[in-house]
């Protein structure tokens, strides 16, 4: 029974990490749009390459934030959460 419980915890942590990374879709699309528009702008006005590139980088970084949040949650779910949850389970059973 205990093995089953621990198995459920580990499996759900892995599933949760996978589902959390669905959030990677949004930043991917957004950054793609930003870079496409920046390329268009550079194509139209090659002399403004420097300003466009740095502005695009900043925009990409801001758009990336949600993806990074999801990534941090996924990393926590894989590396930190299983040990913690199993500990909680064991203390609940033992105590």
């Amino acid at each position: 029974m205990l093995e089953l419980a621990i198995g459920i915890i580990l499996g759900c942590c892995a599933l949760g990490a996978g589902f959390a990374m669905i959030a990677g879709i949004g930043p991917g699309i957004g950054e793609g749009n930003a870079v496409a528009k920046a390329c268009e702008a550079i194509g139209r006005q090659p002399e403004s390459k420097g300003a466009v590139t740095s502005t695009m980088l900043m925009g990409c970084v801001i758009a990336e934030t949600t993806g990074i949040y999801a990534l941090v949650i996924a990393i926590l779910l894989i590396f930190v959460a299983p040990n913690m949850l199993v500990d909680i389970l064991l203390t609940a059973i033992g105590g």
């Binding site: 970084v61 990336e64 934030t65 990074i68 949040y69 990534l71 941090v72 990393i75």
Partner: peptide, 16 residues
């Protein structure tokens, strides 16, 4: 929070 997470998340995910 976002500044800290951004830097840390990028570097950590790269090394992983």
């Amino acid at each position: 929070v976002s500044m800290a997470f951004r830097h840390y998340g990028n570097i950590l995910s790269g090394s992983i």
